[in-house]
């Protein structure tokens, strides 16, 4: 964990409302462990935006870190206005990572909405390790996609309006791929995205009795465990870790990646309301 003033080397819109930023931050980049980890960005040097913005890492190349973010509110708006050459204060790397096994599990990676970044990084890591896998990315419409739908390469894009790839959400595509995969291997799902998507995925993976790891979001104050804000509800039998009890878990320290059967996704507290703008 370090704080570093990083120099921005690129910041552009790669699809409608989806931005990609690269910056040089050797100290943090050298300490990164893997997909799922995030950084916490001080977007506003003044106090108009009091808190840092947690952003999942989308890739690390040498001393460069890439994030992919969706324009959502004033924090991400301010982020999108930064230009190459400008600097930005970063805290990281934070959080845990997806755990990947060497066994021939033929993973399925599912990303939707703001949850593309860690899934994309995992996709690239698995490619480097030559691990066969399926990538499914969802968006509302074609303009929000920056990848190409390519079933031959096991890359499936979905759109709510059918304007690109498969029609509908990522869920039916995932289920049909899961049927194919589980007929010949263990199957494991890695997912990140909006809560309704995660709930649907969990329902399906529970039915198929296969592992599902999810990178979760939460309203985060500090990112390092001192404010105790970013809790999610977990199953009470889980061992206590960084939060002070058994019922709640700190996403910043215990997460953001959780095994889907260790958290209560149906919890009335598990919601995206109160998202930072």
């Amino acid at each position: 964990m370090k704080i570093e003033v990083a120099s921005i080397s690129g910041n552009k819109e790669i699809a409608r409302g989806i931005w990609k930023m690269d910056f040089d931050c050797p100290n943090i980049a050298n300490n990164v462990s893997g997909p799922g980890q995030f950084i916490n960005i001080k977007v506003d040097p003044s106090w108009e935006i009091p808190l840092r913005r947690p952003m999942s890492i989308a890739g690390v190349k040498g001393e460069k870190i890439t994030i992919i973010y969706k324009l959502f509110g004033k924090g991400t708006k301010m982020l999108s206005e930064l230009r190459p050459g400008q600097s930005i204060n970063i805290l990281g790397p934070l959080g845990n990572m997806f755990s990947t096994s060497d066994k021939d599990s033929f993973p399925i990676l599912v990303g939707g909405g703001v949850g593309i970044a860690p899934i994309l990084w995992l996709h690239n890591e698995l490619n480097i390790k030559s691990v066969s896998h399926i990538l499914i990315i969802g968006a509302t419409t074609a303009e929000e996609h920056f990848l190409q739908h390519n079933p031959n390469k096991n890359i499936f894009l979905t759109t709510d309006d059918g304007s690109m790839g498969e029609l509908g959400t990522v869920v039916p595509t995932m289920e049909s791929k899961l049927k194919e995969v589980t007929s010949r291997s263990f199957g494991i799902i890695y997912a990140c995205g909006p809560t309704p998507m995660l709930k649907a995925i969990h329902r399906i993976t529970t039915g198929y009795k296969i592992d599902c790891q999810m990178a979760l979001e939460s309203y985060m104050g500090c990112g390092i465990g001192i404010c105790q804000s970013c809790v999610i509800e977990r199953k009470n039998d889980s061992p206590k870790e960084h939060s002070y009890g058994k019922r709640f878990s700190l996403v910043c320290r215990d997460g953001p990646v959780y095994s889907a059967d260790k958290v209560i996704l149906s919890s009335r507290y598990f919601k995206v309301s109160g998202k930072k703008t």
């Binding site: 009091p50 404010c227 105790q228 999610i232 009890g245 507290y269």
Partner: peptide, 24 residues
């Protein structure tokens, strides 16, 4: 020991924060 309050526990406000951690 105290678990603290259910989330949401924190929200930004102009130049400040509201919090209700619940003495976790």
């Amino acid at each position: 020991p105290r678990e603290g309050n259910p989330p949401p526990r924190m929200v930004e406000t102009p130049s400040g924060l509201l919090n209700s951690i619940g003495l976790a």
